[in-house]
């Protein structure tokens, strides 16, 4: 499972980096989203991969899942959600004001 998860995180990050370097704003937004997905998965896995274990103290528990990465991921998801909304609005504004969706505002300089 570790190999699969690291493969997924790696592919997501690579796609995100590739898309961020594109010249149109929409792929860039998608790239940022993919990057935030990959980092969220990464944060999750930092509490070690456990299945079926409770995150709170219980006398019958055979082991525990680390609850802190889950709290961190929740915060990171909220923040990246807000940031994505903002960057989409900004990209739309740039499209309206600059007349095209090139990240540098078009060739006319």
């Amino acid at each position: 499972m570790e190999a699969l998860l690291s493969l997924v995180i790696g592919i997501l990050t690579a796609c995100g980096v590739y898309l961020i370097l594109r010249t149109r704003t929409f792929p860039v937004v998608l790239g940022l989203t993919l990057l935030s997905y990959s980092v969220n998965l990464f944060l999750f896995s930092m509490g070690r991969l456990t299945i079926g274990h409770p995150p709170i103290i219980s006398p019958s528990a055979p082991g525990y899942a680390d609850p802190l990465p889950q709290a961190l991921v929740l915060t990171a998801i909220v923040i990246s959600f807000a940031m994505t909304a903002f960057v989409i609005m900004l990209a739309l504004k740039a499209r309206a004001e600059l007349g095209n969706d090139h990240v540098d505002g078009g060739r006319r300089k």
């Binding site: 860039v28 990240v103 540098d104």
Partner: peptide
């Protein structure tokens, strides 16, 4: 707007 887009993307 143009400078802002760069600033936001690089900081994200």
């Amino acid at each position: 707007t143009r400078a802002g887009l760069h600033f936001v993307v690089i900081n994200l």
